[in-house]
C-alpha cells in the first residue's frame, strides 16, 4: 500500500496539471478570502474558514481523487495493481493516500494562516473533527463519482455537480445560517459539515449540539460508499 502511495506521489509531482489543480486553485481561492476577510467580517471568520476548506476539499481532494482514479483505470493501471497480492482496499488507499494527505496539509495551512491573521478557532478539536468528516464525505463522493467517470477528461464534467453543489451548499449555510430550512440545509451534502466548521470556529454552540452535525456528513459517507461499491469498476468503462 505504501509502495503504491509513494509511486502516486511521484506521479503527482510529475504532472503539472494535477499540481495546479491541487495547489494553486484552492490556495488562490483561500488567499482571496483571507485577504478580503474584512469584507466578510459580518459573516464571521467561520464562513471564511468554510469557504477555504471546501475549496480545498472540493477541488484538491474530491476532483483530484476522481481524476486520479479515472486516469489509472483508463490506462489499465488499476487492473495492473489488482493483478498483484494487494487487496482492492489496499490499492485504493495507496492511490488516494497522497491526495488526501496533500489536501489535509493544504487545509491545515490555510486554516492556520486564517487563525494567525485573525483570531484562533474557538474549538480546535471540533474543527479537526469537522475537517476530517468533510474530507471523508468528499473522498467517498469521489469514489462514487469515479465509478461513473470514463476518463480524466470526462471527470471535468462528472465532478461539476458535486463541486458546485458542495461549495454552493457550504456558501449558503455560511452566509444564511441554519435558523431557517434547518433540516434541508443540514441534509444537503456539505451543509452539516459547513455548519460544524462555523460552530467550531465561531463558538457559541454547545459541543454536544455540534457533534450531532457529524451524523448527516457521515450519512453521506455511507451512501457514497454504497454507491461506489455498486458502480466502481477496475477496468475501463465501455
Amino acid at each position: 500500500m505504501l509502495a503504491i502511495a509513494r509511486s502516486e506521489l511521484i506521479q503527482i509531482f510529475r504532472n503539472r496539471l494535477v499540481l495546479v489543480t491541487m495547489f494553486l486553485i484552492p490556495a488562490g481561492a483561500s488567499a482571496f478570502f483571507i485577504y478580503k476577510r474584512d469584507a466578510f467580517a459580518s459573516l464571521g471568520l467561520g464562513y471564511i474558514a468554510v469557504s477555504g476548506l471546501f475549496a480545498v476539499l472540493a477541488m484538491g481532494l474530491y476532483a483530484t481523487s476522481v481524476t486520479t482514479l479515472a486516469a489509472r483505470r483508463q490506462t489499465l493501471f488499476l487492473k495492473r495493481l489488482s493483478s498483484t497480492a494487494v487487496s482492492n482496499a489496499g490499492i485504493l488507499t495507496g492511490l488516494l493516500l497522497p491526495v488526501v494527505a496533500l489536501a489535509l496539509f493544504q487545509a491545515a495551512v490555510i486554516l492556520t494562516a486564517l487563525a494567525v491573521v485573525s483570531t484562533r478557532p474557538d474549538n480546535i478539536g471540533l474543527l479537526v473533527l469537522a475537517v476530517l468528516a468533510a474530507a471523508a464525505m468528499l473522498l467517498a463522493l469521489g469514489l462514487a463519482t469515479a465509478g461513473l467517470t470514463n476518463s480524466p477528461e470526462h471527470a471535468q464534467v462528472t465532478t461539476l455537480p458535486v463541486i458546485l453543489g458542495v461549495i454552493g451548499v457550504a456558501t449558503w449555510v455560511g452566509t444564511t445560517g441554519t435558523e431557517e430550512l434547518t433540516l434541508l440545509k443540514r441534509l444537503l451534502p456539505g451543509g452539516a459539515a459547513a455548519e460544524l466548521v462555523g460552530n467550531a470556529w465561531n463558538g457559541g454552540v454547545p459541543v454536544a449540539d455540534s457533534l450531532i452535525l457529524l451524523a448527516p456528513t457521515l450519512g453521506w459517507v455511507v451512501v457514497a460508499v454504497a454507491v461506489a461499491s455498486r458502480v466502481f469498476g477496475w477496468e475501463p468503462r465501455r
Binding site: Q11, T75, L76, F77, R80
Partner: peptide, 10 residues
Amino acid sequence: LQESGFSADL
C-alpha cells in the same frame, strides 16, 4: 496482461 497498464509518468 494483454495490454500493458503501466503509468506513463513512472
